[in-house]
Design a binder for these strands. Structure first.
Length: 650
RNA sequence: GCCGCCUUAGCUCAGUCGGUCAGAGCGACGCACUCGUAAUGCGUAGGUCCCGAGUUCGAUUCUCGGAGGCGGCUCCA
């Protein structure tokens, strides 16, 4: 009997009992089939009217299947070598997969080598993945020695991306069957899987690292040991991924910070607290100064506030209710408790309420580079991106309800414009909404604020991603996510609408008709934190800052000592135009000076010898090694001054 | 905070199965060389081998505790 199907958009008739794999033909690049929109194993038997398409490892969903199947191979290898290991979950994730195990001893780095070796044996042995439907009773019996799997059966659960064991319409077990037809391993899993381990390229699989994790991500549960691995359709994919990791390591701001003498984290000061050295300090100053200039032009006013305050202020703001564990513990002084500030907003509110405000003053935009201290847990502190003390480019805008949409719209434009000047160009927006468990205020206020933010985000013509329940306790937020030079995304600016703090601080302004009205607050930080933004730029540029940001923009390199005077004259000219330039007068020979400047990633090297002096000229060497000899001094200065003024990368 | 790994000179890293084991390169400093596009040569200085306690005749090495770092988990207002 034949049945009718649609295969890759074309009608086709096949014998009943045919599998999806047979329908799609003898094509080893096909891993699974999409049948009526659902992913199925290739040995799935097709039914009349099915719409069938091939799914390959190049498709995101196919790649996930490949990685999920590799996770099964990992689990089999681990149980081969560690028979007592109990299985947790093992889903595909970005760039790879993991599998969680309960073992008596955490895995050691050497264990990974052994496990990987065993995995390769399994891959080469060509085991088939075979799906088998089981009843709940059968599953309980079969998985009696796997307590975590049993727990999952009880939970059933939805179609989660993380828990792949259950969630289908029926309970299924996948058996791994060797060439002799014997079942050598089984796992509760909703699938689908590649047809056999031969479909997983053994030269494109690698175990990466181990980690302790909490069962079902709950820190009250027991800890399991997770093994992370990566798998790709081809060897080249693995190579490219490993290269990406190397590139990221090369750009690591902690490494560059030391190499370029920008900042450090003295142990004596404490974890997560950075000091900026002169080279880093000048970069930071230039970053801040440009920001100040732009803020002035955009109608902001500058304020300054202290770093510590009595507890009452944070009681009033709600921080001590909602955020106490993120704050440094209090200091007792003069019968009062003082706290280091984790946020600037309460202080700015006090400036607002220092005197009566008129509607004519709104929007009032108070800006500060405000240093805050947050007690980050010891395990999360990480370089400049996650510090315990950092400086926010923080502003609070006080406006009327009517002004809010226009204010948010111009604010978003301002943010994106400014970030572009620092060299970031690829953005998307994220809208974080209320977490009912962790928030104050009425539903109506939240809805209104969220809606207005949504409208403002929409107006930007950028991708908008929703982050449900990700907001701070006092209001919804838009964050600007920027992609860096190697495609990583970083959260940059945050913009939050807040109806709550104005109430808590009883902020008011006098309206045109003489009534007292409550303003709305917009919290916003564009860099997020200066330290973090500094780190992002450092990694984005791999240390090679554009001319305007580079700690030293120009180094003059004399061919011999007698050429120093000539270069000093050129450097003086540059300095008089605000360019950070210096002459290398060290005892090193000229090629060594070039090497040093190159390693310091200096944008312009100006070299001068007898030839240049004779022509009243200098010779350029650029970061990419190119050179232009005998450039008249005035032209050279003009070129450099222009590169700085235009914020150009060179 | 939890788990694993790590901490030797300013930096990058050797090394000691407990006993001249304190080493290299770079950097710094000094001397000579006066030099045309990524390292001139020679020499000198520099370390409580992260900190504390314990075991031992003897600890940088072993054990325990602490600090700091790295990778994850959780967290990131």
């Amino acid at each position: 009997m034949s049945i009718d199907l649609i295969v890759s958009g074309e009608p086709r008739a096949v014998e009943s009992g045919t599998t999806a794999g047979q329908v799609l033909g003898d094509d080893r690049s096909v891993l699974v089939a999409r049948v009526n929109g659902e992913l199925r194993d290739l040995d799935h038997r097709v039914a009349p009217g099915d719409v069938i398409e091939p799914v390959r490892a190049e498709d995101p969903e196919g790649l996930a299947v490949l990685r999920h199947s590799t996770a099964h191979v990992l689990a089999q290898a681990v149980q081969d070598l560690f028979p007592e290991a109990k299985l947790g979950i093992g889903p595909p994730v970005k760039d790879g997969f993991y599998y969680d195990f309960q073992v008596a001893e955490p895995f050691h780095p050497e264990d990974l080598t052994r496990i990987e070796k065993r995995m390769l044996e399994i891959l080469k042995s060509g085991q088939r993945f075979h799906r088998r439907v089981v009843t709940e009773g059968e599953a309980h019996k079969e998985l009696a020695t796997e307590p975590f799997k049993i727990e999952l059966i009880g939970k059933k659960g939805g179609n989660s991306d993380e828990i792949m064991e259950t969630g289908g319409s029926e309970l299924t077990v996948y058996d791994n069957i060797d060439r002799k037809g014997a079942v050598c391993w089984s796992d509760l899993c909703r699938g689908p899987h590649v047809p056999s381990t031969k479909y997983i390229p053994s030269n494109a699989v690698k175990l990466m690292r181990t980690a302790a994790v909490y069962w079902l991500s709950d820190e009250n549960n027991e800890q399991l040991q997770r093994i992370y691995g990566t798998a790709w359709p081809h060897k080249d994919g693995l190579k490219a991924y490993l290269h990406f990791l190397e590139e990221a390591a090369r750009r690591d701001h902690r490494k560059l910070g030391t190499e370029l003498d920008l900042f450090s984290f003295p142990e004596e000061i404490g974890s997560g607290l950075a000091v900026f050295h002169p080279k880093g300090g000048i970069v930071r100053t230039v970053m801040e100064d440009y920001s100040r200039q732009r803020h002035l032009a955009a109608g902001y006013e500058f304020v300054n506030t202290p770093h510590v305050t009595k507890a009452a202020l944070f009681e009033k703001s709600g921080h001590l209710d909602w955020y106490a564990e993120g704050m440094y513990p209090p200091m007792d002084m003069d019968h009062a408790q003082y706290y280091l500030k984790p946020m600037n907003c309460p202080m700015h509110n006090l400036i607002y309420s220092a005197r009566g405000r008129s509607y004519r003053e709104l929007p009032l935009r108070l800006f500060e580079f405000g240093t805050v201290y947050r007690y980050e847990k010891s395990g999360v502190v990480q370089g400049l991106t996650r510090a315990r003390g950092f400086t926010q480019d923080d502003a609070h805008i006080y406006c009327t309800r009517e002004q809010m949409p226009a204010e948010l719209d111009s604010l978003l434009t301002f943010v994106l414009d400014l970030l572009k000047d620092y060299g970031l160009t690829d953005f998307y927006l994220e809208l974080s909404t209320r977490d009912p468990e962790k928030s104050i205020g009425t539903e109506q206020e939240w809805d209104e604020a969220t809606q207005i933010l949504f409208e403002a985000a929409k107006a930007q013509d950028l991708e908008l991603v929703m982050d449900e329940g990700g907001a701070a306790f006092y209001g919804p937020k838009i964050s600007v996510q920027a992609k860096d030079a190697i495609g990583r995304t970083w959260q940059m600016s945050t913009i939050q609408v807040d109806f709550q703090l104005p109430q808590r601080f009883d902020l008011e302004y006098q309206g045109p008709d003489g009534t007292r009205e409550r303003p709305i607050m917009i919290h916003r930080a564009l860099f997020g934190s200066i330290e973090r933004f500094f780190a992002v730029l450092l990694e984005h540029y791999a240390g090679a800052f554009p001319a305007w940001l580079a700690p030293v923009t120009v180094v003059g390199i004399p061919v011999a000592d007698q050429h120093i005077g000539h270069l000093q004259g050129v450097v003086d000219l540059l300095r008089s135009q605000g360019v950070r330039a210096e002459v290398d007068t060290s005892a090193d020979r000229m090629p060594k000076k070039i090497r040093n400047a190159q390693k310091q990633k200096v944008p312009f090297m100006l070299i001068a010898g007898d030839d240049d002096i004779a022509k009243e000229a200098v010779s350029f060497r650029y970061r990419n090694g190119e050179q232009r000899n005998g450039i008249p001094i005035a032209d050279a200065v003009a070129e450099i001054v222009a590169a700085v003024a235009e914020k150009r990368q060179v």
